[in-house]
């Protein structure tokens, strides 16, 4: 039922979120330092963009209301079940990875990330080959670290813990 509700008012919800964003952006433009030397200052263009976005958001809301009126509740789409939980897990893992990188350095966090991420993405019915996975993760992490840090001098984070 909940899915149906979101579907019915999707235009309305999206439009309202963008409208709120536009208003926040416009309010933010009030805090831009004014400069008298230049005829139109740094705040002018943000004000313009903000207003346009607000207008577009209102259009979207209008379309959304119309669509909601004409909405015919249909059958839930069969077959393609979207796994939102997995998306959130993936994103959380990515964030954890970046945080961890600053603490433990590139190599360690990357190995951990590659292993866990692959496990998240592997289809449920596929038999996992853990040995291959670990080898893949270690080789890729250590290899790229060596290549980019020691050969191309990109100072990838070594981390606080091991960075002595």
């Amino acid at each position: 039922m909940k899915g149906q509700f979101i579907k019915k008012y999707s235009g309305l919800i999206t439009g309202t979120s963008f409208a709120l964003f536009a208003i926040a952006y416009l309010v933010g433009s009030l805090f831009i330092r004014r400069n008298k030397a230049i005829s139109i200052g740094a705040e002018f263009i943000p004000e313009l963009y903000g207003s346009i976005l607000l207008f577009l958001a209102v259009c979207l809301i209008y379309q959304g209301i119309k669509a909601a009126k004409d909405f015919v509740p249909g059958e839930a789409e069969a077959g393609t079940k979207k796994d939102t939980k997995n998306v959130l897990l993936t994103f959380a893992l990515i964030i954890a990875y970046v945080v961890l990188m600053q603490l433990m350095g590139f190599v360690f966090s990357s190995i951990l990330f590659l292993v866990l991420m692959s496990m998240l993405l592997t289809p449920t019915d596929t038999k996992r080959n853990y040995l291959a996975l670990v080898i893949y993760s270690v080789v890729l992490s250590v290899g790229t670290y060596y290549l980019f840090r020691n050969v191309m001098y990109i100072p990838l984070p070594v981390g606080i813990i091991f960075g002595a």
Binding site: V107, I111, L112, V115, L116, V134, S137, V138
Partner: peptide
């Protein structure tokens, strides 16, 4: 498996 991975990496470090 995760434990083994962690240990492997730790030893590497």
């Amino acid at each position: 498996i995760i434990l083994i991975t962690v240990m492997l990496i730790a030893s590497l470090f």
